[in-house]
Nucleic acid binder design. Structure first.
Lengths: 237, 237, 237, 237
DNA sequence: GATGAATGAGTATTCATTCAT
DNA sequence: GATGAATGAATACTCATTCAT
């Protein structure tokens, strides 16, 4: 017997949504875990199994693997943004900036999934504009504040923070198995180079990416992801 | 000057027929191109197609993917070593060091395959020790010279050079499509941090990898290698 | 009567969906047919084609070729054991023995896959011990009964039954295309030699395989199995 | 400068022939060794390597793998025929017959290559008529003599010897690794069944293959060979 | 909605056979 | 004639994605 719901009766719908939402979250959690352990190449079957749902369910929530990775990425961006905003409130602008970099690098050092996500997942397009819109204001503010206080070299730009993060993540990723704290070393090195120009220290020889270039890059992605498994038949050429 | 022989140096190996040598070279060239563009995960079918030969031909020259990658690797190591040795002769130790870093970072920034090759030896161990034996002396000399001249911070070690170029190149690769020279920016940033300690510049908070740890890392690889295709049936777990 | 469970008896395993069960059966049927016709070297693609399903489906039900072969093997062992047990109940011990030999030789003569299956377990060890545990008691009883009744030469042992059926079936298979019943001729010849010692009939000059040797042989396989396809990269030497 | 040979000047030709003959023999020897060790699935590259010649040379002497196997087979048949003929001269016809069977079985027990050759190489067509023409007379004589002397059951025929040999080879092959002498046991069993009919011993229930059927069978081969590697593209269906 | 079954293109590697040197 | 280089179809197995239950 079919019950035709009144136009405003959304209780059934709500229930499903709650159910669906629970599954969505389970999948995201499992994906973070599995991708962290096995790398982004882990199969969605594995993710589904870890989530305790069928693959079909994963696909119902995320149209394809790319979208799932993207969603994971967005959540991470949100966290990073929150931290960046917190860092903007720090009494000392330099400390704020550095503590943000430390936060970001430290997170990555602990979490291979996050590292991969930030470094290698150039899948997806939506996530790019999202990340840009989301993080840019905080980044700009973080940099500007420190420069205005004369504590940061003036040729540094907001987009540099992304790449700096990327660099540190690379180091962290590389040596995580034997020296989980090695990122501190390389971050310190970089931070040392961030101080305002002094004697014997040259200006940065090339301009930073501007914001459009960064967008463009995020869409094209580095080579690191080109090896990623593509849907059958999707091979170029 | 002692020449360290490649692990499988069969220099006594009978010369290949002209056509065979031509094809061998074609395969190496194609492999360099394809791995550079798609990463080491590219299939040998793809390499063969790019070389304009059948897969069988690739397998005739290189018994498996690993060997092909290794051959590529060996050539690159030799080039880098040669450059490092040249850099040791530079009149100014600082300039020598920096010019080597520029050479290495520049090469690696443009070629993801090379980066993977040099940093993530998922394949074989012989070639890792080869690389280590081959490059290490020059690296040590490069660093020592600059430190003895008081031009380089004293807490920097030879293994850092490897990680620094890796970091810079990886970050830069990300943006390589729009700004192929962006690596210069980030290398400059780091180079600025390499100057001897001054006021406001802290010592590096964690020790560098020692040479055994580096070996270990090269064998284990960072997460970035987890995606590397394994021989069928070799999957862990 | 104790029931010896199959090595991987997952009888608790949740029932397959109707369609899945149908396909599983299709695959088993096709495999029996294809392996019977082409030998165990037939590819799973061929099996899949014969079953009218994709290879993926075969692999969904049986994680690898070995498992498929094993499943087939298990069913066959069960059938043979049932027959052997039936034969133990025959009023006349001699007739019981002979009728079992006829059953086994007849089955094996018509089906090369079955023969390879029963005799050359290049695959797995569990199933060998399963077969041993399952069939041995009946074999021993069959032989003992006939000997106790003075109807069977006393130097025959249980393991001989296996070799006898194998020999007869293999020889007969050779001629099976023109004379599917030729195995009867050679079985009869051998059965004649099974009668208790009489004048002009010598004792068997070498001891039978003992049960451990038989196990060992099944695991190592005769030369006939050398041709068996091995997993890629598993080649000896 | 080309020397046009006088019509009867065959010295150059002879030289080549001698050379060629030497290579041919080398290949045959190597093939016997390699197939014996690795089974008939061993590659021709392996055979060529063992023979110390190039694959091309193998192919020059034998148009394909089948022909090489066939040639090997012929040599074996010649040896067996010689022995059979010797056996015909034995003073006691029964002893002659039995000693021939022992010779054949003993050879096979020691030589896996020979076993495979006789049991599994149904490749080839020429070899069949050859074998028939070559061996049949001796087989017939061997059987007839023993029957005429009343020492052999009268329902045995010449073609049975081939299948009996096959049976014993099967047993030898099966257990050769643990018990190289087990063939004696099964040959003895069979030989016991060859004695003239006595009480309790039934007539053979099916006629032997006649000579045409045997031909036919040798052409079709048993299933055991169906798994043999076929030339690419030669797959049925 | 959720499930998990089915699909098939893709991967590394081998080997019979042909053909340029 | 001999050599060994080149070819490509074939094999076992995996996994993103679609679709029947």
């Amino acid at each position: 017997m079919t019950v035709i719901p009144a136009p405003d009766d959304t209780s059934a719908e709500r229930k499903l949504r709650r159910d669906a939402e629970r599954n969505r979250q389970r999948v995201l959690d499992a994906a973070l875990r599995v991708f962290g352990e096995r790398g982004l190449d882990a199969s969605l079957d594995e993710v589904a199994r870890a989530a305790g749902v069928g693959v079909g369910t994963v696909y119902r929530r995320f149209p394809d693997k790319e979208s799932l990775v993207e969603a994971l990425f967005k959540d991470r961006i949100d966290e990073l943004t929150a931290e960046a905003e917190r860092a903007c409130e720090a009494p000392d602008p330099w400390t704020g900036l550095v503590s943000f970099l430390e936060y970001a690098a430290g997170r990555m050092a602990q979490d291979a999934g996050l590292r991969q996500l930030l470094m290698y997942c150039t899948f997806g397009k939506d996530k790019v504009s999202y990340a840009r819109a989301r993080m840019r204001p905080a980044m700009v503010r973080l940099v500007r504040r420190a420069q205005d206080a004369g504590l940061l070299r003036t040729d540094l730009e907001a987009t540099d923070l992304k790449l700096i993060t990327h660099m540190v993540a690379t180091a962290a990723d590389y040596a995580a198995s034997v020296r989980p704290d090695i990122w501190r070393r390389y971050l310190a090195l970089i931070v040392d180079g961030l101080r305002p120009a002094r004697e014997g220290v040259c200006e940065l020889p090339v301009a930073a990416l501007d914001s459009d270039e960064l967008l463009c890059v995020m869409l094209a992605g580095g080579t690191a992801t080109r090896g990623a498994r593509r849907a059958p038949g999707t091979y170029p050429d």
